[in-house]
């Protein structure tokens, strides 16, 4: 990441004007289920901020609340300085929301979709058409402009959907899982687009279930699980919390698993996670040297190691490290 200037610093007290989104104790309940359970969030202006979490963590509900689509059951929030509950109209005027499912009219052409939105924002006649054409050109959709959206590929729909959010320049752009379901090429394209928008000064709050996506795009990441925020920081800070890497060890004899886990825990001073299949252990390691020492101790103790590798933590592992339980 290249953001060394303002990107990673949170505004201090008295600098609230620098916050695009500021939420305190946001809560949302659906019957018995608490989808969002008291989340605080501060998103500085001009930043790409990622909310990282597994399916069902409450990401979408949080985004829906911040974009006025769902009413919070508790807490408060301001978006671009406007109170979510008391000034929903002003909030709507200063945001754009691209939901998880393409919010487009599939029967209409790509161009008509954009003209429709341009007119709703107040562009008239020719200028609405001009705006639509400019957006289509910028998002590389000019060739498909007069085709019905139902004939578009997943990547094209996503691009049109994001274009639809830029009919007027929003103060904050909410992107709910912008690349879920896209192939790697389309995904790269969306990433490039998001970076371009951020460079032009648009604040972007996005959700993702992919650690690498948050890592690639965001200056700050909030990790949420079961409706709560469990960690927040730059990707470097989060990784440091999880250790520089993750050591995966496969033990040949299942009878030796507990003994091996005890040795790893003693040497690496981190909780050991037992794999679903049983014979694999994984544990945070602070350095490659620690990892190699730990493997050496296992072998010295007569434990047969059938495989080991050092890798960056996966989302599951970050979760395990942060919460002590698995994401699922």
């Amino acid at each position: 990441m290249t953001d060394t200037s303002t990107g990673t610093r949170l505004p201090r007290a008295g600098e609230e004007g620098l916050l695009a989104v500021s939420a305190r104790g946001l809560k949302k309940r659906f019957g018995e289920v608490v989808a969002v359970d008291g989340i605080d969030l501060d998103v500085p202006k001009g930043m790409i901020f990622a909310i990282l979490g597994p399916n069902g963590a409450g990401k979408t509900t949080l985004m829906r609340m911040l974009s006025t689509l769902a009413k919070p059951d508790g807490g408060s929030a301001a978006v671009m300085g406007h109170d979510l509950l008391n000034e929903p109209g002003e909030v709507r005027a200063s945001i754009a929301m691209t939901g998880q499912f393409a919010s487009l009219d599939e029967d209409l052409t790509g161009r008509d979709n954009l003209v429709l939105l341009a007119r709703l924002w107040g562009f008239r006649g020719r200028s609405a058409k001009q705006r639509a054409d400019d957006l289509l050109a910028a998002f590389d959709l000019s060739d498909a402009a007069t085709r019905q959206v139902k004939t578009y590929s997943g990547g094209m729909r996503r691009r049109l959907d994001i274009a639809a959010s830029l009919v007027v320049t929003p103060g904050v752009l909410f992107l709910d899982e912008p690349t879920t379901g896209l192939d790697p090429t389309a995904r790269q394209g969306v990433w490039r687009m998001i970076r371009g928008l951020a460079q032009s000064g648009v604040t972007i709050l996005l959700t993702t279930q992919y650690l690498d996506e948050a890592d690639q795009l965001a200056a700050r990441i909030a990790v949420i699980d079961k409706g709560r925020k469990i960690a927040e920081g730059t990707s470097r800070e989060l990784k440091a919390q999880t250790g520089s890497g993750f050591l995966h060890v496969a033990i040949h004899d299942p009878m030796q698993i507990e003994k091996a886990a005890a040795i790893l825990e003693a040497r690496l001073k981190h909780k050991v996670r037992r794999g679903v299949e049983g014979a694999e252990l994984s544990v945070t390691t602070d350095s490659p040297k620690d990892a190699s020492d730990a493997i050496a101790s296992l072998i010295d103790s007569g434990i047969e190691v059938s495989d080991f590798r050092l890798g960056s933590p996966s989302l599951d592992e970050v979760f395990f490290s942060l919460t002590g339980h698995d994401a699922s």
Binding site: R119, L120, W121, G122, D134, L135, A138, G201
Partner: peptide
């Protein structure tokens, strides 16, 4: 989309609310 395109795209003035 290129940076110049993005800038042109985002530099637009908001029309009056209809």
């Amino acid at each position: 989309m290129t940076d110049t395109q993005t800038h042109a795209l985002l530099g637009i003035q908001r029309p009056r609310r209809p």
